[in-house]
Amino acid sequence: MSSSDIFIGEIIGTAVLILLGGGVVAAVVLKRSKAQNAGWLAITFGWGFAVMTAVYMTGTLSGAHLNPAVTVGIAIKDSDWSNVPVYVAGQILGAMIGAALVWIAYYGQFQAHLTDPEILAEQPAEEGMVDQKAAPNAGPVLGVFSTGPEVRNVWQNLATEIIGTVVLVLAVLTQGLNDSGKGLGVLGALITAFVVVGIGLSLGGPTGYAINPARDLGPRIVHALLPLPNKGGSDWSYAWIPVVGPLIGGAVAAGIYNIAFA
């Protein structure tokens, strides 16, 4: 596959991933959404279906990595880093596009949520807390775009992201790559989608399971740039954890694969 195929495929695939994944979070969280308060099960299955849709859509074009941690894992497995920058650039750009599309699709709900007196009344008390368990610099809709911890503990949060990503990338590497060796096969894509659901159900509680640097960083940038009223901060003090943790997890998974399965 050519560099242009990889770049375009990763943009499209990651945009679809974030559109559907961020979209289910918006549906559950935002006021005046028909799916408001649908709960964690809806979010985890929504993200699983988002992965499945994006992988099947672009697997033949780019291999549908859709995640720098997966790209790093495959690069370590194959000892081939030549296309890593192209993959990562497409993934981050695609994630930003997907996040912007979520904002467009839920524009009215964002406006209603962020101008609701009840939501506004909650913010000053939260921001004034000195030792806040959640994110002191996170606005009320940041969770639609990116992740954050329920208990702010750097080493626990980092470990959680590493562990979740090891499970994801090891699943990708062991569930059958396509003939090119650069992405998931048909059955592997379906299995991995359910693995994402499983990670969300079992390991998503502490941090919201980014397990994907592009999935978190791209939408966080969009949150910082969008003209959302009363949007609050983008919690940049936490932003490194869902980037570094998954990259470490992807490398660890590749090491386990090379030792145990290769």
Rank of each mutant, 00 (worst) to 15 (best):
S2W: 07
F7Q: 01
E10F: 09
I12N: 00
G13M: 02
T14C: 01
T14I: 05
G22E: 07
G23T: 07
V28T: 14
A35W: 06
A35V: 05
Q36H: 13
Q36A: 14
G39A: 09
A42C: 14
T44P: 03
G46A: 10
G46D: 06
W47H: 07
F49S: 02
A50Q: 02
V51Y: 01
V51I: 15
M52H: 01
V55T: 12
Y56T: 03
T58F: 02
G59A: 12
L61S: 06
L61H: 03
N67A: 02
N67K: 03
V72K: 00
K77L: 14
D78F: 03
S82V: 09
V84M: 11
V86D: 04
Q91F: 09
L93G: 02
L93D: 04
L93H: 06
M96F: 08
I97K: 00
W103R: 13
I104F: 15
I104N: 08
Y106C: 05
G108I: 01
Q111H: 08
Q111E: 12
P117W: 09
A121T: 12
Q123A: 13
P124L: 07
A125D: 10
E126F: 11
G128K: 12
G128V: 07
K133P: 10
K133A: 15
K133V: 12
A135E: 05
P136N: 11
N137Q: 13
P140N: 11
V141L: 05
V141K: 00
V141E: 04
V144A: 03
V144F: 04
V144L: 09
S146I: 00
T147M: 03
P149M: 05
P149G: 06
V151R: 14
V151C: 05
V151Q: 13
R152F: 09
R152N: 11
V154N: 12
Q156C: 10
Q156H: 12
E161M: 07
E161I: 05
I163D: 04
I163C: 11
I163F: 11
G164H: 09
T165L: 08
V166D: 02
V167L: 14
L168C: 09
L170W: 05
T174G: 12
N178G: 08
D179L: 14
D179I: 14
V186Y: 13
L187K: 14
L187H: 10
L187T: 14
G188E: 07
L190E: 05
F194M: 11
V195I: 12
I199E: 02
S202Q: 11
T207F: 04
G208A: 08
Y209L: 04
I211K: 01
I211G: 00
A214D: 01
L217D: 01
P219V: 05
R220W: 04
I221A: 04
H223V: 07
A224Q: 13
A224G: 14
L225D: 09
L226I: 05
K231I: 08
W236L: 11
S237K: 11
S237C: 10
Y238L: 05
Y238N: 04
I241G: 00
G245N: 00
L247P: 01
I248M: 03
I248V: 15
I248Q: 03
V252A: 10
A253I: 03
Y257F: 15
Y257R: 12
N258C: 13
I259W: 15
I259D: 10
I259R: 10
A260L: 15
